[in-house]
C-alpha cells in the first residue's frame, strides 16, 4: 500500500513536470488523494452586490480596505506605484461611461468601493501568457503568484484597473510585526489583486469585506435563484462597471 502510493505520487510528479496536467487528471480520477474541505462554502458562480446607499463614505470604505489589506498582507506604498485590493473612488471614476450631467448630486458625490470584478469573461485570463491568472470553476479569477513572470499584460488587459504590480519589495511596505501569519505576502515583480477571499471560502467563511460591511455587501451564488444575491438583484436596481466591454463583471452596485 505504502509503496503503491509513493509510486503513484511519483508518477504524478513526473506527469506534472511533463504536462502540467497531472493535478487535473488526478483530481478527476477516483484515486485522488485530495478533496475539498467539507466545511468550505461553494458555488457555481460567486457574485457580490454592493449597496452604495449604505456604503458610500470614504471612512467606511477605508475601514473595509484596511480589513482586507491586513488579512492579505497587502503592502502600503505611497505614490502611484501603490498596491491595493480594495479602494474607493467617486462616481465619475467608478462609472466614467455612465455619467450624466444632471445626476442626483448625492449619487454623484458618493464614494464607491472598487475591487476586482471577477468577470465572467476576464481579459486578464485571456492575455496571461503563463496561466498564472486563471478562472476557477466557481467564477473566481485567481492568481498563482509562483508562476507570474511580471509581464503586466493582465494590467493592460484589465478594463477596471483592478490589478497592482509589486514594483519594489512589498515587505518594505508592510509592518512586519503585524503580518497575518496565516497568509503569505507577495514578492517583488509579480502582479496581485483581490481574490474574493478564496482562502476564507475554503474554510466556510464569507469574504472579509462582506463580513465587515454590516450588510452593505451581499455575497452569494449567482446561479442559485434563491441565493441572497439573486434576491437583491431581483428587488433593487443595479449597475455594473463598463458594461460595454463584455466582461460580465461579478460585482454589482445598487445605486
Amino acid at each position: 500500500m505504502k509503496n503503491n502510493r509513493r509510486a503513484f505520487i511519483k508518477l504524478a510528479g513526473i506527469a506534472a513536470a511533463g504536462l502540467a496536467l497531472a493535478p487535473k487528471a488526478m483530481a478527476s480520477s477516483g484515486a485522488s488523494p485530495v478533496k475539498k474541505n467539507p466545511a468550505g462554502i461553494t458555488a457555481k458562480r460567486w457574485a457580490m452586490v454592493i449597496d452604495s446607499t449604505k456604503l458610500h463614505t470614504k471612512e467606511d470604505i477605508a475601514k473595509l480596505a484596511e480589513v482586507c489589506h491586513s488579512i492579505h498582507n497587502v503592502p502600503h506604498i505611497e505614490g502611484n506605484q501603490n498596491v491595493k485590493w480594495i479602494w474607493g473612488a467617486p462616481y465619475a471614476q467608478a462609472f466614467p461611461e455612465q455619467e450624466n450631467p444632471h445626476l442626483a448630486e448625492e449619487v454623484h458625490e458618493r464614494e464607491y468601493i472598487l475591487l476586482c470584478n471577477h468577470c465572467e469573461n476576464p481579459p486578464c485570463v485571456r492575455v496571461c501568457p503563463t496561466q498564472a491568472t486563471y478562472k476557477r470553476p466557481d467564477g473566481i479569477v485567481a492568481m498563482d503568484y509562483h508562476r507570474c513572470i511580471g509581464c503586466r499584460y493582465c494590467m493592460a488587459g484589465c478594463p477596471y484597473g483592478s490589478r497592482s504590480f509589486n514594483w519594489g519589495e512589498p515587505r518594505e511596505g508592510l509592518d512586519l510585526s503585524k503580518l497575518n501569519p496565516e497568509f503569505p505576502t507577495r514578492m517583488r515583480g509579480v502582479v496581485e489583486k483581490c481574490n474574493f477571499c478564496v482562502e476564507r471560502l475554503a474554510v466556510g467563511k464569507l469574504p472579509a469585506c462582506v463580513e465587515a460591511s454590516e450588510g452593505a455587501i451581499v455575497f452569494g451564488d449567482l446561479s442559485d435563484p434563491d441565493s441572497d444575491v439573486r434576491k437583491v438583484l431581483r428587488e433593487r436596481f443595479t449597475i455594473r462597471r463598463k458594461p460595454a466591454v463584455g466582461t460580465e463583471p461579478g460585482v454589482y452596485y445598487i445605486i
Binding site: R5, I9, A27, V34, Y134, R136, A142, A202
Partner: peptide, 29 residues
C-alpha cells in the same frame, strides 16, 4: 524517506491542488 526525497514535488502538487482545483484537504497513505 518520502518527505526527504520528494517534499519539493509534494509542495508543488499541493500548490496546484489548492490554488487551481480548490481542493485543500490532503489524505495521506
Amino acid at each position: 524517506e518520502f518527505m526527504r526525497r520528494e517534499h519539493m514535488q509534494l509542495l508543488n502538487d499541493w500548490r496546484d491542488w489548492a490554488l487551481r482545483d480548490g481542493k485543500r484537504i490532503y489524505t495521506n497513505h
